[in-house]
């Protein structure tokens, strides 16, 4: 019998981790929720979910997680960021000017404009961007294209555009997933994206190993 891969879900006190925990378990992992920086430092794999506001995320980093996460990323600990856990990898966000993300990737998180229009009907698009959308890319795990569940009002704009491995379309293309080294981060919610989400979590567990 093979051991279930261990994965630590980082609890930054931002919203509900239950669906992430359940989805990782269903994908074959043995997830534990951690909230202490020492536990982050010791993790074999990190999953950083997050709903809510960038400022709260930055504050949670300042309460002791900034160094632990930065060091873990530096060591090549596999990291899966979801939504705010993706935003937090960047330097700053329009959502909370002055608040500092991890700065692992250069770039900003910017507001989805309510001036975006549907490319077919011309209708003004709603914000938050909420619901199922297609993510496509040139490489795994997005080379097949697939539908994922989104709910967000801000998007990441990496300075290095080659980081973007999955994009989606909402009145223009936006960055739906980034990947670099042992870091994978997505704007959508794999834990709410049924079969596709399940496949993405399995992909992370299978292909992302500690360096």
């Amino acid at each position: 019998m093979t051991r279930r891969p261990g994965v630590s879900i980082v609890d930054l006190g931002l919203g509900n981790l239950k669906s992430v925990e359940r989805a990782l378990h269903d994908a074959g992992a043995d997830p534990v929720v951690v909230s202490e920086p020492e536990e982050v430092a010791a993790a074999a794999r990190l999953v950083v979910p997050g709903q809510g506001a960038f400022r709260d995320f930055a504050r949670a980093l300042d309460r002791g997680h900034r160094d632990a996460l930065t060091e873990a990323l530096g060591r090549g600990t596999p990291y899966l960021g979801i939504c705010l856990g993706m935003h937090g990898l960047f330097e700053e966000s329009d959502e909370a000017p002055g608040a500092k993300g991890l700065g692992h990737f250069r770039g900003r998180v910017v507001a989805l404009s309510t001036e975006r229009r549907d490319s077919e009907t011309g209708a003004r698009l709603k914000v938050p961007h909420m619901g199922w959308n297609v993510v496509q890319g040139d490489q795994a795990p997005f080379d097949e294209g697939g539908w994922f569940y989104f709910v967000h009002s801000y998007v990441c704009e990496p300075e290095d555009t080659s980081l973007t491995v999955g994009s989606a379309e909402y009145g223009g293309p936006f960055c739906a997933a980034v990947r670099s080294g042992n870091v994978l981060a997505c704007q959508f919610h794999p834990e709410k994206s049924q079969g596709r989400g399940h496949a993405l979590l399995r992909y992370f567990l299978k292909h992302f190993e500690a360096a």
Partner: peptide
Amino acid sequence: VRPVNEGRGADG
């Protein structure tokens, strides 16, 4: 609409 069979059996 999202197709009903979307992602069924999809695996990584």
